[in-house]
Nucleic acid binder design. Structure first.
Lengths: 211, 211, 211, 211
DNA sequence: AATGAATGAGCGTTCATTCAT
DNA sequence: TATGAATGAACGCTCATTCAT
């Protein structure tokens, strides 16, 4: 009877937006970006096609919002790492755990991630979004390494360059694992074995003797 | 106007096919797979659209042939590595050089490569082609590592798992470098620094003392 | 919060309606009928889209109401002309002044007027509205001419036909002036020179004496 | 069997283009620009929708080509007038005949013409095309008037301004006649009576002697 | 084999209108 | 009455592929 308040409208919009993003995630994951029709998403979200355009300016925007949403979460997790009160080596191990979690929890999003990379090649805004994620992770990684060096845990290394490795390796793993299959490559194992290898090379005698 | 021999016809066909593939490589590299029209390729190859279909069954086939052509060359190069009469460590260094070459020589193909990965997510034949490349490289890598271990150059490691690293890292580097730009990441440096790090951890005292 | 009287409600409604029509006039004038969205009008009028439909049955109705509003004013002005206590020739001159005023005062409405004509081609109700305007003007014009003939001011002419000229010329002028621009044609000059021509006659004595 | 020659292809294209334009003329005339779907035109032309786009870049282009085609013919006719070896007054009468012909021969195109004017309000290219037509006619008219003045047939008048009249009056007539109907206005009569009026002068000696 | 005109299913997007609150 | 979220039919345009010559 009485008209909805502004707050009620905001609530409705927030819910609908989440509902659409959720549906889009499922459909994009199953069918891929290019084989997904807006009508598919509308159907999955149980709204009309027109409604999609009240919340997103188009298919591209919807796709990018999906990525942004997810990237924010990952960034949040990674940014907390350097502040933990554990050794730098353990922080690296935690970074590996983040990789494990990433590969495991949102598994349906992994193909979407790959398509997003291809998408970003020809979409500057998407590229910027990706670069921000990369630099956030790189920054955390650099902090950890530098701390390790300062503490005498790690040998002195080219921090700027090596801090790129986490996302590089993770991306590569996702790519390869999705295409060749888990029967050919087990990404979690690659992460763990690589960390071990790196530790052998990175740790000082001091650091290596840690319990 | 003298009637051509069968051999001459085959020669002409081979040339035309190469001509089309070359044009496709340029156009795909510049515009991306999805933004490239068959008419664009026809124009670049200076043939009619119909002619494309005399040499390839469709756009997908053309795209996959492009990848296959290039993968064969890479496989050839990598397969020769294990047989070289140098130390295992040097073979790893050569593997790094192959990465450098890959990143440098066919730079225009790198975006195509990324798109091919996304393409392979939803195309089994393309996935198989990619897996073959992966396994070829992995196999060579495993031979080198095992040889290094057998010779006492390398510490004993999980060969099966670590031999996945070359393509994983290379793929990740291509992905990230293309999107975030060379001003943010220099893939060749990452390769070199990573190799150094790995050598520190991988080489035995014996191997490490090599010149 | 005291309950409004019926009269107050009607007053509010009248104001809102005028507010919407005013906004519509601006937007239609700037963007044209087909490029104007109901949401544009709602925004300009600072009401919601739904409110528009409380005052007008739809976009067409809004457009036609705009025209009617304006046509009524023009009709009122023209209908007063014949009763003026001046010579018939001066009444014609006044008719020219009305044209001037029309071209000058509501200049932003002129494109809307042209679009309304195109609109009326396929909308019978709009056509009737336009015809009423035409016939009102034609009727006044006929009265003036007949009066002039009766008084001996004018030669006897085909009143019924010539009385169509004012709106015909005015429409043509609006059309042409809007499209080709005022640097190519100055409609006020055309009106004045044409009136002079009509008053004086084009032919010299020689030309006038043609058989 | 043998491939078509370049000339054969040109022939095919010319025919198809004419075929499509002809169909478009009919459909646009019947349904109006905005109510005409490309599929309607395709159906009327007995080609597929895609074919339309091989010959025109879109609906707008098709519409404008229609106008251009027809304007060229009218321009051709009018441009020949000044060179005729008859009196200037007779040339004016011929100009009137052109108007008659215009109103009669392509009667189905008249509504399209009106819509084109509204279209040109918001399409610069269309406006230019219209302006070219206007100026061509104006130029011919100016030549005739100047010749008449030079010969002593006509009184000296403001040629530049009055030469705008033909298209202005014709446009106005088309507009009004189409909307109010031929039972209310007969455009040919208006042309003829107006020409008579212009030739003879409206005012009596008495009226003419007014200050 | 080569040509290029023709196809037509398909899709992203728009926007006037409706309706629950 | 006022709101604005929701609707969904509609349409212009694309482009990989086919086919007659």
């Amino acid at each position: 009877m009485s008209p909805r308040t502004r707050a009620q409208y905001q609530q409705i919009r927030r819910q609908r937006r989440a509902q659409i993003l959720s549906a889009a995630r499922q459909v994009f994951a199953q069918q891929g970006f290019h084989d997904t029709k807006m009508s598919d998403i509308a159907q999955a979200a149980e709204v009309s096609q027109g409604t999609l355009y009240h919340y997103f300016s188009g298919k591209d925007d919807l796709f990018m919002s999906l990525f942004s949403n997810w990237a924010e979460q990952l960034e949040g997790t990674v940014q907390e790492l350097p502040a933990a009160s554990i050794s730098a080596a353990d922080k690296l191990r935690l970074m590996g755990q983040v990789g494990h979690a990433f590969l495991g929890s949102d598994r349906e999003l992994l193909p979407v991630f790959v398509e997003y990379c291809a998408f970003a090649l020809h979409n500057p805004r998407a590229a910027i979004s990706f670069r921000d994620l990369f630099q956030t992770i790189q920054h955390s990684m650099a902090q950890i390494i530098d701390e390790g060096i300062a503490r005498g845990e790690f040998k002195p290394v080219d921090t700027a360059t090596l801090s790129a490795l986490p996302l590089v390796v993770l991306d590569g793993l996702i790519l390869v694992a999705l295409i060749v299959g888990r029967d050919v490559i087990v990404p979690e194992q690659v992460i763990d074995r690589t960390l071990e290898l790196v530790f052998d090379g990175l740790l000082t005698e001091d650091g290596a003797s840690r319990p």
